[in-house]
């Protein structure tokens, strides 16, 4: 299974990549929403099975990325990560058909549960 991980923080990206690879996933990485969109364009869509994106990123935030994905790629599962546990944010994310919302900090096990739940 291929997961596209989007986060503007390289340390987070590396952390997530290692964790997910250990669990047997293929990981694609993007440092911004725009880079993620390019990733979609480059790769054959069949290659990406799930998107795991940070919410707060410069340029395009996670919810904007979700909107873009919904427009172009339909119901591809998306999990948003955030360090803000704001209820309004959760509601907005869910309204935009984001599949799941996970608040930092979380463990690999918790992330795995979410991935299994949405795929």
């Amino acid at each position: 299974m291929n997961i596209l991980v989007v986060d503007d923080d390289a340390l987070q990206l590396e952390t997530l990549r290692r964790g997910l690879k250990n669990k047997g996933y293929q990981v694609l990485e993007a440092l911004s929403g725009k880079e993620a969109v390019k990733c979609f364009a480059r790769s054959n869509m069949a290659k990406i099975d799930l998107v795991l994106s940070d919410y707060l990123m410069p340029g395009m935030n996670g919810i904007e990325l979700v909107k873009k994905i919904r427009q172009n790629y339909g119901s591809l599962p998306v999990i948003l990560m955030t360090a803000y546990g704001e209820k309004e944010l959760v509601i907005e994310a869910l309204r935009n058909r984001c599949d799941s919302f996970i608040e930092k900090p979380f463990t690999l096990d918790q992330l795995m549960q979410e991935i299994e739940r949405v795929t």
């Binding site: 923080d9 340390l11 987070q12 952390t15 997530l16 290692r18 964790g19 250990n22 707060l56 360090a83 803000y84 930092k104 900090p105 979380f106 463990t107 690999l108 096990d109 992330l111």
Partner: peptide, 20 residues
């Protein structure tokens, strides 16, 4: 709230990596 956000983000690396 900016600091809280930053700390949570970085702490995520610790929380996430310890089980690994």
């Amino acid at each position: 709230s900016g600091i809280v956000h930053e700390i949570k983000n970085l702490n995520n690396c610790v929380t996430f990596n310890i089980p690994i």
